[in-house]
């Protein structure tokens, strides 16, 4: 099963087929999510209209953790089973995940200022999210630091796996320690504590962010596969 998709040529064919579907899903879902989120959903009983920042903040934060988890799994598969496509997927995910993390921090600051009264605090949730951004940036820097790309991949895969401990820390920071950030509203044991009229735009935006990620991921993986071919061709030209 894995081996079938691990074949880059076959993957390229599937990717070109799937990509337009991801593009259209993103556009339609984001359109619906924006309509519900900005126009038809109600204001919050405590936070008023500012609650609308949630519809970009929360999906970005979820995707930041989702992308890192995906990267850790890919890096692990690449390290253990030496699947070239797994390494490529990890490398292609990093910049997108870094963007999501930045957006979660940025929109969080814009939400924190009017509600909490501060742009930033060093509580466990916010700090561990900042650590996640540094892990992404460190990975990108390390993966590109070596002349021999396979050595860069090894070193950066190890960094990703070590850094993975941060993901459960982000998720549970609000339960383990007291923080300024409130606990989870959607993904928790006793069901979401968020009204359906606000849960819908949130979920639509979350799925849209997810299909956006897959869309960009397919483009970046295709670009990486071609880049690898170029490298091989150049080596052949130099040596042959």
């Amino acid at each position: 099963m894995l081996h079938r998709f691990a074949n880059p040529t076959r993957f390229l064919r599937i990717a070109t087929l799937v990509q337009p579907w991801m593009a259209w899903s993103t556009i339609l879902l984001a359109g619906a999510g924006l309509y519900l989120g900005l126009l038809s959903s109600p204001a919050d009983y405590q936070q008023g209209e500012s609650v609308r920042i949630m519809y970009v903040h929360v999906p970005a934060a979820w995707m930041a953790m989702f992308c890192y988890t995906g990267m850790a799994v890919s890096a692990g598969v690449g390290l253990i089973w030496k699947h070239p496509l797994a390494d490529i997927a990890a490398k292609a995910t990093a910049p997108v995940g870094a963007c999501f993390t930045f957006l979660a921090l940025f929109t969080g600051a814009l939400w924190g200022k009017p509600m909490w009264g501060t742009w930033w605090v060093w509580d466990a949730r916010l700090t561990s999210m900042l650590v996640l951004l540094f892990l992404y940036l460190g990975y990108i820097a390390l993966a590109n630091a070596f002349d021999d790309p396979s050595r860069g991949t090894r070193a950066s895969s190890i960094l990703v796996l070590v850094g993975f401990v941060n993901v459960p820390i982000i998720k549970f920071s609000v339960d383990w320690w007291n923080t300024l950030h409130q606990p989870a509203s959607v993904i928790k044991m006793d069901g979401p504590s968020i009204d359906a009229s606000m849960l819908w735009p949130l979920l639509l935006m979350a799925v849209a962010f997810n299909t956006y990620y897959l869309w960009v991921l397919l483009i970046r993986i295709r670009a990486e596969i071609v880049a690898n071919k170029i490298r091989i061709l150049r080596l052949k030209q130099v040596h042959g």
Binding site: D44, Y45, Q182, I194, D195
Partner: peptide, 15 residues
């Protein structure tokens, strides 16, 4: 410095 902490409940005022 005084910061407000909000809870994890989101709902419209009518609810």
């Amino acid at each position: 410095e005084v910061l407000a902490k909000h809870d994890e409940n989101y709902m419209p005022p009518e609810v």
